[in-house]
Amino acid sequence: MALTRVHFDEELTDLRSKILLMGTATEEMVRDAVAALVSQNRKQAESIITRDDAVDAMQLDIETQCLRLLACQQPMASDLRMIGAALNIITDIERIGDHAVDISKVAQRIGEEMFYKPLVDIPRLGELAQAMLHDALEAFVHRDLARVDKVITDDDAVDDLYSEMRRDLRRMMQEDPGCVVQASHLLFVAHYLERICDHCTNIVERVAYAETGRHKKALHTPGGESGPNLRAA
């Protein structure tokens, strides 16, 4: 079937590209925030706080583009769902950026103070969060439902690791009250990383709705899989 809205299609492609750009910038912020914490690099941490302004500006730009497309192109069906998803996704990405800033601030607070024990789980959780964000963005850009499922599955592993970390840090604080301040900082970092993963899950749930017309939660209900097959559209 011949395409009859070439200009609009180009606008949608541009929208996807901009979201990918915003997401990639945020992904790098998460990576660098964890690196700044682990390597105790205050300068690197400081740079992340500045980079967040750029991400915020991208969010406003994309939001404006979405509203313009809604007003001027009157999108319907999967186009409408995609733009609706985009509006939600950029909110999640922006919050991920905020959490990267939160982690950077912790890195600044801890500064060069020696760690009570080598950081192992936080870099691991950071890698998981970064990979989930990467997959979530890939799922959005390539309309890939397999990656949607992967991100949702990965989030379970993150939740397990986060619970384990909380237990360990609590035990550390009980055993050595001297480490309470640092351990509570690290507890916050673990929490921020876990929240980043939750935002990634939100993103892929929006992708699933944009692509299938069904909310991801509905897909898990009996009979939910028999929903509309619009993937070919």
Binding site: A77, L80, R81, A232
Partner: peptide, 19 residues
């Protein structure tokens, strides 16, 4: 119909992708 049509032909038409 205008958010999640069942049929691909409906989807194409309301999205304005009808050749």
């Amino acid at each position: 119909i205008f958010t999640t049509p069942e049929q691909k032909e409906t989807e194409d038409y309301i999205r304005g992708r009808f050749g």
